[in-house]
Write a protein that binds this DNA or RNA. Structure first.
Lengths: 173, 173
DNA sequence: CTTGAAATATAACTAAA
DNA sequence: TTTAGTTATATTTCAAG
């Protein structure tokens, strides 16, 4: 049994790009740009949501404007006995962890962390290091975002990828 | 002249949390939950946008559903003569780079990269390594997302931070 | 795709703190 | 002066044809 192919066509990609650029755009407005009626657009958006292509709509917020001026990536090294589910629990235990993943390489996990200040970040690190199984951490503090939109996942950086249908083809071999 | 304090109050934070959870929520609906009329909500949202607290509204898309099944973080080491603006240019030159930043530590930059397949990723790496000033790279391929929402920046992981006004206070010293 | 009724966005105006 | 409520109108949503 293969995973169901979502079957996203050119029109869907354009609609996705428009919704990524502005999630509050009206179906009428989107329809005008893609040459479709509003109900037709709505049907496609509903289908993209049902298919799990669109997972939701969100406001993008400048973390600094809310007092979260620090950002860092932290590699976590665990005891070899650490069950993989434990890191997931650790990630949920600390609200400052905005993303967590297992990765290749020496480290067992990579954490994306936001904090108010260096001092706050230091306390978060201490909290994480105090977790069972966590042996040591290796941090990289973000200095400057080099791309507009800054944070990945804001959707905007994904848009260029949508504009290249040829690149989306399944690669041979 | 100090930077203007955005002055985000409790009500704003609730509205932000609701918009992060669903960017297409109607002002009437938001108003019901915070005890405000629709125009009052709109005025606040307009102000949050004008203040740069809200930078936009975006659809969150599952990259895998579009054929982007690979994700990696790549540390880039440059020649000491590399101007900082060059990395920014490199980042813009490769659409697979969804985020790029300068960081503390040995590496000069950290890239967040999305690719269709391992083979595609390898070719992207070769392209980046061929850039002037880039001396070497060190990659960490993402294996499993440990938090729901996966990607950071989707807004959802930021929501818990909004729920903690006490944590948002400016820290002494 | 088109239609039409219900819901929504939004501007102008008014009222209150 | 700043913020919210009310009203009025254009627009949008959405189910049905």
């Amino acid at each position: 049994m293969t995973h169901l192919p979502p079957a996203v066509d050119e029109l869907d990609r354009t609609i996705l790009a428009l919704l990524i650029a502005d999630a509050r755009a009206s179906f009428v407005d989107i329809g005008r740009r893609v040459g479709l009626s509003a109900p037709a657009v709505k049907r496609r958006v509903d289908r993209l949501r049902a298919n799990g292509v669109i997972t939701g709509f969100t406001a993008t917020v400048r973390a600094e404007a809310l007092g979260w001026g620090m950002e860092a990536f932290v590699e976590v090294y665990c005891d070899s006995a650490a069950p993989p589910s434990r890191m997931s629990e650790v990630a949920r235990n600390h609200p400052e962890i905005v993303a967590a993943m297992t990765v290749t390489g020496d480290a067992d996990a990579l954490l994306h962390i936001r904090a108010r200040t260096i001092g706050h970040f230091e306390r978060v690190l201490e909290r994480i290091r105090a977790e069972p199984f966590v042996r040591r951490t290796d941090s990289r503090v973000v200095l400057t975002q080099l791309l507009p939109g800054g944070d990945s996942g804001s959707g905007a950086p994904l848009r260029p990828l949508l504009d290249r249908p040829a690149e989306n083809a399944v690669e041979p071999g």
